[in-house]
Simulated assay, not measured.
Amino acid sequence: MKDKMRIALAQTPCKLGDKAENIARMRKMMERKEADLYVFPELYLTGYMVRDDIFRLAEGLDGDSVQAIMDLSEEHNAHVLFGMAAWDDELPGVLRNSAVMVSPDARVQRYDKINLASFGPFEEGFYFGAGNSGTLMDIDDHRIGVVVCYDLFFPELVRSYALSGAEAIVCISASPVTSRDFFEKLIPARAVENTAYIIYVNQVGTQLNQVFFGGSEAAGPRGDRIAKNRYFERDMNIIETSLSDLQAARRNRPTVRDTVSR
């Protein structure tokens, strides 16, 4: 197994309702630096604040947009994780707030957001059905757990991934500036609790009446910040996860071991 994995925190504004333009912006970010995995924010494909237009813009996983991103994945020999509004595969007419990962070998993996934000300015419950289970995704020989934004507030979901063998937890997000303080406290806490890498990639820019702060970041398995993207601007950092560093952290602070042994 390869010890290290390079992950790109690809923070770029999306154009509201314009999927073709957003895929073009993906391409530009992927051309900047090489990585094994490029991560884009929650509902990046359409933008977050499209409201009722989400039903017109949503696609299945066999749609044109996923195919276009699959072509990018093959071209760059890299995995691409991004947020989209995806129709449920088995329940006609049910929409999910999904994290989708495409791979160079044409595999498509998906996680449907379990904890929908339906309070304050958030209206996800009007549009989406909640997912019912986590999804452990494979990247070559590595495993990552994926959560979407508000999911990060629920430690049992993140812990379930760590107990299933995840080396990293990736959170794709559409968090406005009013939520910044919460996420910047949660990210190192989840890393320390689970001795796992936590990668957080947020929307950036203004959409209707919401200002998304960017500020994507990553924490190592001891809770130390290892990358921080700029606030309110397009930015991309590459982090390198290390399986040997993860194993050392878990020997020194054995939260995963001690949970399993109960």
Rank of each mutant, 00 (worst) to 15 (best):
T195W: 04
Y150W: 10
C171P: 04
D224A: 13
T255D: 00
A162L: 06
G134Q: 08
S175N: 06
A85K: 05
L116W: 09
T255C: 02
G47Q: 13
A196F: 00
H76C: 06
V148K: 04
E193S: 05
Y111H: 14
K185M: 09
G17P: 12
A117R: 11
M137T: 06
T241R: 00
A218R: 03
L81T: 08
I144G: 00
I199K: 01
M49D: 15
R251V: 15
F122N: 06
M49C: 14
S216I: 05
E233L: 13
N132W: 04
P176S: 12
R32T: 15
P41S: 10
R32P: 07
P221A: 07
I23G: 05
D89Q: 12
L45I: 15
F212G: 08
F40G: 04
L136G: 08
F40W: 09
A227C: 04
Q11L: 04
R225V: 10
R32S: 14
K28S: 11
R230W: 02
V201K: 07
E123S: 12
N77W: 00
A219R: 11
R257I: 09
D62K: 12
E42H: 15
Y197I: 10
A24E: 13
L81Y: 10
G125D: 14
S242V: 03
E184D: 15
D71C: 07
D71K: 14
Y38I: 02
Q207C: 10
I238S: 01
E167D: 03
T135W: 02
W87H: 10
S261H: 11
V204W: 10
G134K: 10
D3R: 12
V260K: 15
I114K: 02
L16N: 11
I198G: 00
R110L: 08
H76I: 11
A227T: 01
R251I: 11
A168W: 00
K228S: 12
Y127M: 04
A86C: 12
V39T: 01
Q67C: 01
T241G: 04
W87Y: 14
F212S: 12
E184W: 14
R6P: 02
L37K: 03
M29R: 13
G214Y: 09
T12F: 08
I198D: 01
D258A: 11
P155D: 05
F212D: 02
T12M: 08
Q109P: 07
E184Q: 09
K33D: 07
V177R: 08
F212A: 06
R262H: 13
D88A: 01
G145D: 04
E42L: 12
V66K: 03
H79M: 05
S98F: 11
M30K: 02
N237E: 14
R253F: 14
Y150R: 13
T195C: 15
A174F: 04
D235R: 10
G60S: 15
T46F: 07
L37P: 02
I114A: 00
L91N: 09
L16K: 14
L163H: 06
T241S: 00
S216V: 12
E124S: 08
D105P: 07
R180F: 08
Y44T: 10
D89H: 03
A162S: 09
V260E: 00
P188T: 04
E90S: 13
N115W: 04
P188W: 01
Y150L: 07
S242K: 11
P155S: 08
V94R: 12
A24F: 06
M29I: 13
A68L: 13
E34F: 05
M5T: 08
A106T: 14
P188Y: 02
K113M: 15
R110C: 03
I23W: 11
F183L: 11
L186A: 15
